[in-house]
Design a protein around this nucleic acid. Structure first.
Lengths: 307, 307
DNA sequence: GCGTGGCATTAAGCCCCTCAA
DNA sequence: TTGAGGGGCTTAATGCCACGC
């Protein structure tokens, strides 16, 4: 099921562990997307999973006529905990309190940084990128030369300004939280955010001359490592595919499930995939009618790895 | 994205919460499948999610040249914890220790029950289903009449025997665990298993005459509520779809992603779906060649709920 | 960079008791 | 009798920090 090219050594060995359980596999892929690609915190992912489980419990609670004990027994937790969970969910549903979910593909405190930077430290062509009275013009030149080409219009700032920026960002991202859940920006958290920004090459660090380094904004998007634009559509496609399959479980008449397994000669492959692609388009063109019911088709074809 | 028929009231309101985050939605659907349908414990689902996150961390650790601190900062956890996690994973990879995963679609302690029951309390046609010297023949008849038709060949047993059965089952299911992680069957856990078995109608309870109830085996499969045979293929389809999409991210030449959105007139729908279905089959037949590369096609079509 | 120590808090588990409908 | 609600308990893990190498 999992692919094992030499560049993905991790997957190979995990294969043994995740083995036959599809749910474990999906969870692993989700963790990868959320944490490794999008940069969500470890704890945030755990919280999101817990929240999902709590919602499931809440559904059972409703189905079982709001019987705390029975719900608890069905899912093996204390009725006391069930009650807390029910309160938590209802608080979210009725009073708009927030549950601990990931909320968006990328953490807000990461997405927002480039804009805040530009706002706080704008730069116009012709001006010096770095304003620092302790440095000679030639030193400033050295710093500016280390910037890659085509960086956004923003000044190069020093470490203190950078930390200030992160703190401001943290405040903003917390403004949507209820007061009791807000926390000051801890050192560990700050280090984490900085590491994420550097790792994703949104921000670059420029060594200063024996002092704390400078920071430059390298691009406007916080993007995960790898082909970010595709990475995100994957999750959305999977979510939609999941939804469609669930509808199929209910045997809705308007849902089609199709799974084909076949062997294709390597030399035919390209042609086969192209033909399939145009078959689908022709089909869609043929049946499309303005004002009809909106439909979606999700398809994936590729190498079959397990039977 | 989520469907909101009156029979799925839960989904409607959760929609507001899970809103725009595809990962949160997938997590919720997974929790539903694992806990509500398959009957996995709440804690087991949380453990599985944690394990998935740990695997992701371990991959980062390998990628970052086994740098504990950097890995910790990238995912916002203590290097101390990273180290523990690395040891845990390596213990699983190298020494075959077990990670806390769901492992199979249904919990083993539930699947195994019918077979153990038949083995411990076999029954042959013609014999009485219930052997109990304290009851009169007419009382025994009353009990047997409460059994639904077509139950498996197994005796009706009393509460003590039932508990014994669960304990035996628990021992067996723990035999694969390392000694230090084994736990005695707690009362709460036993209640949970019993509730699951009754809820899924694998086992039925028959009230006794003022005493502890009897138990009857109602069918051989522990199956979740609803259309179980479809419910499970959903998860497997989604896992495979996910895998294919991930391959697509890497821009492999042998992977095709197709997404079509269109509007279909309701009266055309059935024909459109049928035509699509046969288009795919014809395509598969045309290109199938023995000995070629094994390929798989996963497709879902249905109502589009969000744009 | 790594390794060590400490700290508070939360929550998953276990169990027992009493009270009311 | 069963559910609700209260109590008290252990263990683990998420977080925070600081110190020394």
């Amino acid at each position: 099921m999992l692919n094992c090219s030499p560049f993905e050594s991790g997957y190979c060995e995990f294969q043994q562990i995740l083995d036959d359980s599809a749910i474990d596999q999906i969870l692993f892929r989700l963790a990868e997307s959320a944490m490794r690609k999008a940069g969500h915190r470890y704890g945030a992912f755990l919280d999101a999973a817990t929240t999902a489980a709590k919602l499931a419990i809440y559904m059972t609670y409703l189905e079982e006529n709001q019987n705390l004990r029975k719900t608890g027994r069905l899912h093996h937790l204390e009725p006391k905990r069930v009650k807390e969970i029910v309160h938590e969910i209802q608080g979210a549903l009725l009073r708009g309190k927030l549950l601990k979910v990931l909320g968006s593909q990328e953490p807000r405190y990461l997405i927002g940084l480039p804009y805040l930077w530009q706002q706080q430290h704008p730069w116009r062509p012709g001006q010096p990128r770095l304003i620092n009275k302790a440095l000679t013009p030639s030193e400033i030149n050295l710093v500016e030369e280390k910037l890659p080409p085509d960086v956004p219009d923003a000044q190069v700032i020093n470490s203190f300004q950078f930390i200030e920026l992160l703190e401001l960002l943290h405040e903003k991202s917390q403004s949507s939280l209820p007061v009791d859940r807000r926390t000051p920006l801890s050192e560990a958290f700050r280090d984490h955010i900085e590491m994420r920004l550097l790792h994703s090459k949104t921000v670059i660090q420029i060594e200063a001359f024996g002092e704390l380094p400078f920071y430059g904004l390298a691009r406007m998007t916080y993007s995960p490592t790898g082909q970010q634009e595709r990475t995100y559509t994957v999750i959305e496609d999977v979510a939609e595919f999941f939804t469609l399959r669930q509808a199929w479980v209910d045997e809705r008449p308007d849902v089609l499930r199709a799974v084909e397994t076949l062997d294709i000669a390597v030399e035919d492959r390209e042609q086969a995939l192209q033909e399939l692609s145009s078959l689908l388009q022709d089909w869609a063109d043929k049946y499309h009618r303005e004002g009809g019911e909106p439909m979606v088709l999700q398809m994936a074809v590729g190498k079959r790895l397990a039977d």
